[in-house]
Amino acid sequence: MIKQGLLNEFNYEAENTRKLLKAIPDSALDYRPQPHLWSVAQLASHIANIYTWFDGTFNYDTFDIGNLERVEYDLTSAADILAKFEGHYQEAKKVLENSDESTYMNDWKMVAGENVLIPASPKIAMVRGFLFNHLYHHRGELVAHLRAAGYPVPGLYGPTYEDSQKR
Rank of each mutant, 00 (worst) to 15 (best):
Glu162Met: 08
Thr103Tyr: 01
Met1Lys: 05
Leu96Ser: 07
Thr160Phe: 04
Tyr73Ala: 05
Leu29Tyr: 04
Gly129Val: 09
Ser77Gly: 11
Phe130Asn: 04
Tyr73Phe: 15
Gly129Lys: 05
Pro159Gln: 02
Leu142Asn: 00
Tyr151Trp: 15
Trp53Arg: 04
Pro159Arg: 07
Leu82Pro: 05
Ser45Asp: 05
Lys93Gly: 05
Glu141Cys: 03
Tyr73Val: 01
Val153Lys: 02
Glu101Met: 02
Trp53His: 06
Glu101Thr: 10
Leu7Met: 14
Ala125Ser: 06
Glu114Ile: 02
Gly56Met: 13
Glu86Arg: 06
Asp163Asn: 07
Ser164His: 09
Glu15Gly: 12
Gln4Val: 05
Phe63Gln: 00
Arg32Pro: 00
Lys22Glu: 14
Leu135Val: 06
Gly140Phe: 00
Lys123Cys: 01
His134Asn: 12
Ala144Met: 06
His137Tyr: 09
Pro154Arg: 00
Ala48Met: 05
Asn115Val: 01
Glu86Ala: 12
Tyr60Asn: 15
Gly5Ala: 02
Leu96Cys: 03
Tyr104Pro: 04
Tyr161Arg: 14
Gln4Cys: 07
His138Met: 07
Leu131Asn: 00
His36Arg: 07
Glu72Tyr: 13
Ala79Glu: 12
Ala112Pro: 12
Asp30Glu: 12
Phe85Tyr: 09
Ile124Met: 03
Ala23Ser: 14
Ala148Arg: 10
Ala14Gly: 07
Phe54Gly: 00
Leu146Ala: 03
Leu6Cys: 01
Gly87His: 10
Leu117Ile: 02
Ser99Asn: 06
Ser102Leu: 08
Gly5Val: 01
Thr52Pro: 00
Asp163Gly: 08
Ala44Glu: 04
Glu86Gln: 15
Met105Thr: 15
Gln42Trp: 11
Glu162Gln: 09
Phe132Thr: 10
Gly150Gln: 11
Lys123Pro: 00
Asp74Ile: 04
Gln34Trp: 14
Met1Phe: 03
Asn133Ile: 07
Phe63Ile: 09
Thr52Tyr: 10
Gly129Ala: 04
Ile65Val: 02
Val143Asp: 00
Leu20Trp: 00
Tyr104Asn: 00
Ala79Gly: 10
Leu68Ala: 08
Lys19Val: 08
Gly113Lys: 12
Ser164Trp: 08
Tyr73Glu: 07
Gly87Asp: 13
Tyr157Leu: 09
Tyr60Ile: 04
Ser77His: 09
Asn59Lys: 13
Tyr51Met: 01
Val127Ile: 15
Val95His: 04
Asn59Ile: 10
Ala14Arg: 03
Glu97Asp: 15
Ile118Leu: 15
Ser27Lys: 11
Ala112Lys: 14
Gln4Arg: 06
Lys3Gln: 09
Pro119Trp: 11
Ala83Glu: 15
Asn115Thr: 01
Glu114Tyr: 09
